[in-house]
């Protein structure tokens, strides 16, 4: 059995291990998804997100025509085409609602297990610490995808229920058919999922610092707000491209014909940077941490 012994860290050499019969932690990943999406809190978060497009659609339906140019982008187009509920709701949920829910899930990753005491049992099972960190982060990413997807799909559904559905006019002036528009909704959800990857990594790191999950959740949400506030200050223009929230609203490119992938690529690169930095910090903190909870 060739295993590298590193006394200074507590069981970190996962990557060198041969594939065990249980697979590469896939079993634990499925279990993580079951625990995450099986618990009521996650459903409450997703329901709250789904309520956003419903509220928007009902409000528009009940009011007289929205004057063009007022309110969030696309709002004035909803009454002509229900699919715009999805676009509007996704746009509206970016600054607060998505970071809030992702903050809850990402902040809970390690601190939540520590708080329940299950962390020590996962580790003596044994789950390597790196493997646990990866599985936990993968679970948070799954939620990052589920959250905007919920907003988009709920938006499309309620839009189709309350308003006529027809060809969608893109920002570039081109017109696409509803099936293609649905594809764009999925694309935007993917864009937002990528956008939230950096914040999730920050949350994962914060979660390794405490055994009080609420603290890590709140801190993660605060970080996302601070990042967005800094992004608004013209004096800090040099900093803006480095803020993880910088491209959060940049998915307009996905509503053009032909598709522009520039902002998607810049966003992905930036988020990858955050994942690398905060992933490394979380690793550094977690593998040497004494689990005393």
């Amino acid at each position: 059995m060739s295993s590298s012994v590193r006394p200074e860290t507590l069981g970190t050499a996962d990557a060198t291990d041969a594939a065990p019969p249980g697979g590469w932690g896939l079993s634990l990943f499925w279990s993580e998804l079951r625990v995450l999406f099986g618990r009521r809190r996650t459903w409450a978060l997703l329901l709250a997100l789904a309520a956003i497009p419903v509220l928007i659609a009902v409000a528009v339906r009940l009011s007289s025509a929205v004057p063009a140019g007022r309110g969030p982008a696309f709002l004035d187009r909803i009454s002509q085409n229900g699919l715009f509920v999805a676009f509007t709701a996704m746009l509206v949920s970016v600054p607060l609602f998505l970071p809030l829910t992702v903050g809850v899930v990402a902040g809970d990753t390690i601190a939540g297990e520590a708080n329940l005491g299950t962390l020590r049992y996962l580790l003596v099972a044994p789950t390597g610490r790196v493997r646990l960190l990866l599985v936990k982060y993968a679970g948070a990413l799954a939620f990052c995808l589920a959250a905007p997807l919920t907003v988009g799909l709920a938006g499309a559904a309620i839009g189709a229920a309350l308003f006529p559905v027809g060809p969608v006019t893109l920002l570039s002036g081109d017109v696409i058919e509803p099936p293609q528009a649905a594809l764009r909704i999925l694309l935007i959800a993917a864009y937002l999922a990528v956008s939230l990857a950096g914040l999730s990594a920050v949350g994962l790191f914060l979660s390794t610092l405490t055994v009080v999950p609420v603290g890590a959740m709140a801190a993660t949400v605060v970080v996302s707000v601070v990042s967005q506030v800094l992004d608004q200050l013209p004096q800090l223009e040099w900093l803006h491209p480095w803020l993880f929230s910088h491209y959060w609203l940049g998915f307009g490119d996905l509503l053009r014909q032909p598709l522009l992938w520039d902002s998607f690529a810049s966003n992905a690169l930036l988020q990858a940077g955050y994942v690398a930095v905060f992933g490394a910090l979380a690793y550094g903190r977690f593998v040497t941490k004494d689990i005393l909870s």
Partner: peptide, 30 residues
Amino acid sequence: ALVEGPAFYPFLSGSENLHRLDAATRHAAP
């Protein structure tokens, strides 16, 4: 091991909890 009292996910059933912890054991055959 039983370390400093039992700890489980309160929202999962007893058997789901054990399934979860067994899934965390790399050498346990699914």
